[in-house]
Design a binder for these strands. Structure first.
Lengths: 206, 206
DNA sequence: TAGATTGTTAATCGATTAACAATC
DNA sequence: TAGATTGTTAATCGATTAACAATC
């Protein structure tokens, strides 16, 4: 049973399980045990079983997990049985890469609008979507329901863009700017900063 | 004193401290206490002090931490007092975004070579760097010392590219492909997959 | 000196792992 | 049935927090 007190770290592993199940399916498998899955993910079978047990019993003793039905369960738990609309602010190189990335739409995330402040990109199309002036942000999205924002503007503009998105009712933000955004508790933020990842790895080099 | 048994989770927070100290410095501050830093990062002062204490005592009782000298210490701990060379494989939209990103070089990560298999981009320049054929990967990098590889190829090619990089002596990999790479224990891997982050956040929406 | 904040220890909290009865 | 693997509980492990003596 889905309950409110599932540890966040458990939730963050579910998409990883889904990704790996996808690969197993493409490898032609239809059933998988917690230890096979654990081998792939470098995790203990115990952890996988315990993670899943927060949401119910999906396996069959002596057999393991039916891949397709476990995937369906995970997709349902993660609310992935719908198309999530995304607005993107900042059409520099990273923004353009996201607009051209087909992995978003294949996974059910549709970028429905893109904004920038530069006349150099306003009016141009990337990934089939025409870039609008960021001045139109509020009028464009305050009426249509959009839940997720992707921020790909320079660091110094990120907080302001964030505030405006929050005011429009955005509830989740994918932040590519290298700053810690201030948001109300009810708003999710995920940060993507490759530099932080590199700086962690260099600790172990040398 | 830097020791071998610092928990990985502690190491992963050091770049975050560095980022925040940078901001404080730009805000005109020169000293910061663990509780001010904790406010910014939404962490307890205890955690910050304990994290830092793994590496030595950097503060002054009654005062706090001198920002510049703490930053120097952190940079030294993380081995950031050198320019790290990076090779990039895969010059699609994401690869191009990285080649054009100045945040890498500003933080001491220099992309020294970029490879692709497509004649559409081989020979072209992005961010001032000419793309080479991936056939030349080994000859180009096996002699010059490069420690870090960035993989921005399609998922189905990522493992092969990874294997080739490891064979060339690469010790850290920034992986943008949505697959779990198999590497020897001595090789660091950091994955960047925005879809996983989105899929985690949608759990809390709806 | 008095006030503030560190570095460190001990207590608490939470996550991971091991073990095993249940059962397919 | 016998073998395998689940779901769950209890034990272990590790990380976070609280508290406080040391000291600037």
């Amino acid at each position: 049973m889905k309950s409110n007190d599932v540890p966040e770290i458990v939730v963050s592993r579910l998409p990883l399980y889904l990704q790996t199940l996808n690969q197993l399916l493409r490898d032609g498998k239809s059933v998988v045990s917690s230890s096979e899955l654990g081998d792939r993910l470098k995790m203990t079978p115990s952890q996988i079983r315990r993670d899943l047990s927060h949401f119910g019993g999906f396996g069959k003793q002596g057999t393991g997990y039916d891949i397709i039905s476990l995937m369906e369960s995970l997709r349902s738990i993660l609310n992935l049985n719908q198309i999530w609309k995304v607005v993107l602010i900042g059409v520099g190189h990273v923004g353009q890469a996201l607009l051209n990335y087909d992995g978003f739409s294949r996974k059910g995330f549709e970028i429905v609008a893109a904004f920038d402040e530069s006349p150099k990109v306003i009016g141009k199309k990337f990934g089939g979507l025409e870039v609008k002036s960021v001045d139109l942000l509020e009028t464009a999205i305050c009426q249509i329901p959009v839940d997720i924002g992707a921020i790909t503007v320079p660091a110094e503009n990120a907080q302001m863009v964030c505030d405006r998105l929050v005011k429009c009712g955005i509830r989740a933000i994918l932040n590519y700017a290298p700053v810690a955004l201030e948001v109300p508790e009810s708003v999710q933020v995920s940060n993507i900063d490759p530099v932080l990842k590199l700086q962690k790895m260099t600790y172990y080099l040398k």
